[in-house]
């Protein structure tokens, strides 16, 4: 069972669903207030969606100066798993933990509808239970969702397989290369614009997002299984 800290900023509004999704996947989830400085031995940190600090100046620009972000940055730099969803993704970009930035949607309007994303990478803590190429239907709800990076960084992200999810069918917000989610060079920090926590049970219209949270637990199991295999030569050759 992983300890999952869901950070609550003033203006977060997806914190409860995110915590529920983590707990439904078997995690020991709990809230951490933005003024705290201690993640309480978290294995995984999730920055949920919402409108932290009213999105003043730029989405995520003020939240990244919150007390707790020092600990989040330390956790990330030490290789700990961090997931940012929607506003959480924006905060991770503002904090410099993920490349790029998120700007006003190309159509200038708030977007609130399901989008379709293809899973491009399955070697992150949040996608290891998906198959490469799977297409997921997940709700999006954002005004500033257009992922932007310079051409050189975009090429680097592609060359190093760091685009984790990509919009298919249409590009709902004008993101560069249809990017819906990315990871850092260490592949432990992940950001996604649509909301997997809003699609994790049949009662919510589907469960395409559930494995984002189950992956956090499964990765632990997989690592443990690998340790066991390493003890036994015969299994190593399989």
């Amino acid at each position: 069972m992983k300890r999952v800290a869901v950070i609550v900023f003033p203006g977060s509004n997806c914190d409860a669903e995110t915590l529920a999704a983590a707990r439904a996947a078997g995690s020991d989830g709990y809230f951490v207030w933005h003024r705290d400085t201690d993640l309480r031995q978290a294995d995984v940190v999730i920055l949920p969606g919402g409108f932290s600090y009213g999105d003043y100046l730029r989405s995520g620009a003020i939240a990244r100066f919150s007390n707790i972000m020092g600990a989040v940055t330390g956790h990330a730099r030490a290789g700990g798993a961090v997931l940012g969803i929607c506003n959480g993704f924006q905060i991770l970009c503002e904090a410099g933990l993920l490349p790029g930035g998120l700007m006003r949607n190309a159509r200038l309007r708030f977007l609130s509808r399901p989008v379709w994303v293809r899973v491009e990478q399955t070697d992150t803590p949040f996608t290891c239970l998906y198959e490469k190429g799977e297409v997921l239907e997940i709700p999006a709800a954002h005004g500033d969702g257009r992922y932007v990076v310079d051409a050189r960084t975009a090429a680097e992200l592609e060359a190093t397989d760091r685009v984790v999810w990509r919009y298919v069918r249409d590009n709902p917000n004008g993101s560069v290369n249809e990017i819906a989610g990315v990871t850092n060079a260490g592949r432990n920090v992940v950001g996604i614009m649509p909301h997997p926590e809003r699609r994790d049970a049949p009662a919510l219209g589907g469960q395409d997002g559930a494995r984002v949270f189950h992956s956090m637990e499964a990765r632990h199991a997989t690592q443990h299984a690998a340790d066991v295999r390493a003890v036994d030569d015969r299994h190593l050759r399989v």
Partner: peptide, 8 residues
């Protein structure tokens, strides 16, 4: 540090 995001 804050007022502009040099990325964008």
């Amino acid at each position: 540090r804050l007022l502009a995001n040099p990325v964008t």
